[in-house]
């Protein structure tokens, strides 16, 4: 559905002379560190913000960020409120029926179950599993025999595990890892799962083939000179899977 964003947290990029040009609007969630989030000074920051700005610079596009909540992020792309999605979105088959994807700018994230320390592995089959609604992980849980409980933001899924509403959470491992590391042993990973999908990619309307080619070319150039890998390491640490 159409969510209209009245937001102070948008970054207009590019020079003022470019105003006459069309602006490419980049949609993101702004609540998924370290992919994209609002920092204390109310600015969008994160891996995808840095990457998106660089891609726009290389493709000589004037870009503007738009914050949109996750649940309506695809409908609002299709409805034309912005032109691309960069929000830690995996290119899955189900999504590819509705929108188009660029090549991946981050290799498929392993998803992981995270639970309180000492939780039995069996909760993955017969427990209550939290996931963010409309994510790949939510549909992965609904394919198991576990009980799915959905929250609109990723942050709330973690809170649900802490307070016992859910036995475990299934989410991107790179998102969960900070929570595990900073919990002083309170939280731990149960297991990793390899999700379907070609990796984290830019989502576009299926009719925008030209824009898609532009972004694919920009990603290629960032892969070629190693700057994409550098960004990945900068935001996700040394253990992240980098491109060959």
């Amino acid at each position: 559905m159409k969510k209209l964003v009245l937001s102070a947290a948008l970054l207009a990029l590019g020079s003022s002379t470019a105003m006459a040009q069309t602006v490419t609007r980049l949609g993101t969630e702004g609540a998924y560190p370290p992919y994209n989030y609002l920092d204390e000074s109310n600015q969008l920051v994160g891996f995808e913000i840095d990457l998106g700005n660089e891609l726009c610079a290389r493709a000589q596009l004037t870009c503007e960020w738009v914050q949109n909540d996750w649940d309506s992020i695809i409908p609002n792309l299709v409805g034309g409120n912005y032109d691309v999605i960069m929000a830690g979105m995996n290119a899955t088959e189900a999504r590819a029926e509705v929108i188009a994807f660029s090549q991946a700018y981050k290799l498929p994230d392993p998803s992981a179950y995270m639970a309180l320390a000492g939780t039995d592995m069996s909760v993955m089959e017969d427990g209550v599993i939290a996931a963010q609604s409309n994510t790949m992980q939510a549909s992965m849980v609904s394919d198991t025999s576990a009980t799915l409980i959905e929250f609109p933001t990723a942050d709330e899924t973690i809170a649900a595990v802490r307070n016992g509403t859910a036995d475990a959470v299934l989410a991107d491992r790179d998102f969960l890892v900070t929570y595990v590391e900073e919990s002083n042993g309170e939280l731990e990973f149960l297991a990793n799962v390899t999700p379907p999908g070609a990796g984290v990619s830019i989502g576009l309307r299926q009719s925008d083939t030209e824009l898609r080619a532009t972004f694919d070319a920009a990603i290629d150039s960032m892969k070629a000179d190693g700057s994409l890998n550098a960004l990945l390491v900068q935001w996700f640490g040394d253990e992240v899977d980098v491109f060959e």
């Binding site: 159409k2 969510k3 209209l4 964003v5 009245l6 937001s7 102070a8 947290a9 609540a31 560190p33 370290p34 989030y37 609002l38 920092d39 204390e40 949109n68 909540d69 309506s72 933001t153 942050d155 709330e156 973690i158 809170a159 900070t178 929570y179 590391e181 900073e182």
Partner: peptide, 25 residues
């Protein structure tokens, strides 16, 4: 609910757990 960043939006945004990615955890 209309996607406007009102007090409820900010209460939810700012109140959530802040990990080491943020300056103020």
């Amino acid at each position: 609910l209309l996607g406007i960043q009102d007090v409820v939006f900010w209460a939810r945004e700012l109140g959530g757990q802040k990990t080491g990615h943020y300056e103020y955890t």
